[in-house]
């Protein structure tokens, strides 16, 4: 359980060190002062986390241990992200209404229970998007992304 914390602190230290190096290389003049200070603080805190974990290990004090996702859980997370990304990408191509309906139907069916009625879910999605469209476009006059469909 200490190994994870040590790896996290090393990754964090490397990130801030790389950011510091990148700042010095790419940012000019006084503009680099504040980010460099932040990076140094980040490195110090990462080192402190590493040391703190080592001390806890020696004293036998338990530390946080994350739970590893199962294969099924990883697939779920990736699918959710892919659906969100696809929705965002499609929104300007096929329009807000069509992409929202497609996203909602896909999301609700994929993450819903196996016993759910798919026709009912599709209807709920259609009604929800219609209500949201009326709220955003008609009532609040919000500019929604446009595509070749609605």
């Amino acid at each position: 359980m200490y190994k994870e914390n040590k790896i996290v602190s090393l990754v964090s230290f490397s990130f801030f060190a790389a950011a510091c190096f990148f700042t010095i290389k790419t940012v000019v003049g006084d503009a680099r002062l504040f980010p460099v200070i932040a990076c140094i603080l980040g490195m110090v805190f990462s080192a402190a986390l590493f040391l703190h974990t080592c001390i806890n290990e020696r004293l036998g004090v338990p530390v946080f241990q994350s739970k590893r996702n199962s294969h099924e859980e990883t697939v779920k997370v990736l699918t959710a992200f892919a659906l969100m990304l696809a929705y965002t990408a499609l929104i300007t191509v096929i329009g807000w209404v069509t992409s929202s309906v497609l996203f909602m139907v896909a999301f609700c069916i994929y993450f819903g229970s196996k016993e759910q009625n798919k026709i009912k879910t599709t209807l709920i999605s259609l009604i929800t998007v219609a209500v949201l469209y009326i709220l955003f476009a008609a009532a609040m006059n919000t500019v929604l992304p446009k595509g070749f469909l609605i």
Binding site: M84, Y87, T88, C108, T121, I124, S125, L132, F136, T142
Partner: peptide, 22 residues
């Protein structure tokens, strides 16, 4: 599942409306 989908739509639309940028 329905709530999560609605939240995603609200967040995407809200951020687009607030900043006018994808």
């Amino acid at each position: 599942n329905i709530l999560a989908a609605v939240i995603v739509i609200l967040c995407v639309t809200g951020i687009y409306a607030a900043t006018n940028s994808m």
